[in-house]
Design a protein around this nucleic acid. Structure first.
Lengths: 184, 184
DNA sequence: TCCTTTGTTGGACAGTCTGTCCAGGAACTG
DNA sequence: CAGTTCCTGGACAGACTGTCCAACAAAGGA
């Protein structure tokens, strides 16, 4: 690939990441991206159809990187994805924070989640059957993981990936069990 | 409150919901909202500073409604929020699907989640300590719940709230345990 | 009912961002 | 060095935003 192309594209990616961390995705304009990347606006459009195409390309790139780094550390149990993913996230903190971060724009879910968080917090000061499809289980687990990941990253990824993995495994092993000792 | 005000505002809310379900939040313009709501564009701006203000107002309204309907069915255990919330969601499917739905715009998370979902699915075909802060636990649970909720709504909320609540409780009681019987 | 208050409306406005196009100049490749 | 490919600024129409105003309509109390 032509050096100029490589330079331009990586500059654009870096600029998008940087701006997403401050203004959020929606608040970022193509003009700003080009200004930060020191690239002509015309040039932007010769590479990407629009802002979204740039983002999608970045995500695809992260996806490849993740899949590959995962391929190296194969573990064949459920939850095996946890540690590799956490490590990968820490290696690419900025990318992850920009793309998955709770900050700006990404999640309109934020406010509903906050309401819920209040409720759950309150209820945690006190507390079986089997009708589950695999689909629900997957969504449950992914949702839980993404939430924990986001939480971790937004606070600066202070804990080690290993600590977080352990925490996540504990939680997955039984949420209710974790909190019975507290009181009831 | 003046009848005209009430009429205008609820028309705007309804229009936003309707448009979010089709074009997504970001793809919806103030002009469209006004067209659908049969309201002058000038009028829009006498009520809300911008599109976001309208959305926030809608969310606040849902929040109030949820808190209230919750106040009626008090259960003092962890996970007590599950059933009331699911019922509330079903009563206001459109609102929830528009605001929390996976469809358009809301979650840039979508693609990362898909990558992860693939991985988890693959690993589910096969596999204790305690270092968890309460914060992580809350985020874990909320994330899991929101994910299940979104999944449920996006598929049309076919299952009953009770079924979903049971499923969620089972999962929370121990994800790993749920899937050991499958093979290993 | 009448009158005052309050809402609604279309139109006009400047400003921002988008996506497209082009022609001149720069950088790469062989 | 030559030919190809890329970068660039500038110009363009089009869409959307947020603000303002003057005319009109509806509400609700006296």
């Amino acid at each position: 690939m032509d050096r100029r192309v490589a330079r331009t594209r990586s500059a654009l990616h870096a600029a998008l990441i940087e701006l997403m961390l401050t203004r959020g995705y929606d608040g970022t304009t193509v003009e700003e991206i080009c200004r930060v990347a020191k690239v002509g606006r015309s040039t932007f459009y010769t590479h990407y159809a629009d802002k979204d195409a740039l983002k999608r390309d970045g995500l695809a790139s992260i996806g490849r990187s993740l899949r590959q780094s995962r391929h190296e550390t194969v573990r064949d149990d459920a939850l095996g994805f946890v540690l590799p993913m956490l490590r990968h996230a820490r290696e690419h903190v900025d990318h992850y924070r920009a793309l998955a971060g709770g900050h700006g724009g990404s999640m309109a879910l934020a406010s509903i989640r906050e309401i819920l968080a209040g409720i759950v917090r309150q209820e945690m000061r006190s507390s079986r059957r089997r009708t589950v499809s695999a689909d629900v289980a997957v969504n449950y687990l992914v949702g839980a993981f993404m939430a924990v990941l986001t939480w971790w990253l937004d606070r600066g990824a202070i804990e080690s990936p290993e600590q977080m993995a352990d925490a996540f495994r504990d939680l997955s092993a039984g949420y209710a069990a974790m909190h019975r000792p507290t009181r009831n």
